[in-house]
């Protein structure tokens, strides 16, 4: 178990000693084992690990969509409540409401919170512009490409002004080109808005490019194996991902993280 330097009063979200065991017909599946992870305000934490190691489970617990077997989730030092707009989630499979237009999807969280119509319209329009979605405002999800759908999902998660944004392999279902564009978009978002983000991926490149800190998980049962800080002032930060990935510092980090994951995959 690795202790985290970020522990302490400054942690925005604190995952403490979280374990998870699923009871299935085939027996108990031990998915997570005493995971500790603290995320500071404004920090972009990327969790990587071999597939099936429990990344999604950890995120579901962090979101309040799944109960941990042991341990707890703290937000600002207080036990986090059930799932809610304090911690919104962007899923790999978009999860847009098929019966609602782009604008209605984005307005969903505001509407259920009882935000009045004028304010809702204002914030939705603003968000549409911010995510460059204005021209698709009245389209239905099935009329959009995967990349556009995921933009809508991100806009929908951001418009409620969450304290923490959780993203579970958000680009995993996209083709390589769309993914690159969206990676740069998210990099821009987090730079401009300074969101607190917990981001899950199995792409090491994505992790190094986006993260302030990369957390490597072990194979199942998932534990936090190692944390690697990415320098905030790294030279590639302002480059697009294509150029960044050929920077020596970038390659060095990528190699280091990949080596950690590889030993986990081999260990399985």
């Amino acid at each position: 178990m690795t202790t985290t330097k970020a522990h302490g009063p400054t942690a925005k979200m604190d995952i403490r000693g979280v374990s998870k065991t699923f009871d299935t017909r085939a027996g108990a599946v031990h998915a997570l084992d005493r995971c500790d992870l603290a995320i500071r305000e404004g920090e972009f934490v990327v969790v990587v690990g071999p597939s099936g190691c429990g990344k999604s489970t950890l995120m579901m617990i962090a979101a309040g969509l799944e109960a941990p077997s042991t341990g707890q989730i703290l937000v600002d030092g207080k036990p986090a409540g059930p799932a809610g707009p304090q911690r919104t989630v962007v899923f790999q499979r978009f999860a847009l409401f098929p019966s609602e237009t782009v604008a209605q999807n984005i307005a969903f969280g505001l509407r259920v919170a009882g935000v009045d119509r004028a304010e809702r319209a204002r914030r939705v329009t603003e968000q549409l512009e911010f995510m460059r979605l204005s021209q698709f405002r009245d389209a239905y999800p099935h009329e959009l490409s995967g990349g556009m759908q995921q933009r809508v999902a991100i806009a929908r998660a951001l418009v409620v002004r969450p304290e923490i944004l959780l993203m579970d392999e958000p680009f995993g279902a996209l083709d390589a080109q769309t993914r690159t564009v969206l990676q740069e978009e998210v990099a821009r978002l987090s730079r401009e808005m300074n969101y607190t983000v917990m981001f899950i991926t199995h792409s090491v490149e994505e992790a190094v490019y986006l993260g302030d800190r990369v957390v490597v998980m072990s194979s199942r049962p998932g534990r936090i194996k190692k944390e690697i800080a990415i320098p905030r002032d790294a030279g590639w930060r302002r480059l697009d991902i294509e150029e960044a990935s050929s920077e020596p510092g970038f390659i060095e980090l990528k190699r280091e993280i990949w080596a950690l994951i590889r030993t986990e995959i081999v260990r399985q």
Binding site: M60, A63, G64, L65, P82, A83, G84, P85, R87, T88, V89, F91, R93, A95, L96, F97, F108, G109, V112, A113, A153, R156, A157, V160, L166
Partner: peptide, 17 residues
């Protein structure tokens, strides 16, 4: 799709909504 329910929950919807 259970994911739609999850999405709605994280956006703050209650059971009735």
């Amino acid at each position: 799709d259970a994911l739609l329910v999850s999405a709605a929950l994280t956006l703050g919807a209650n059971d009735r909504q």
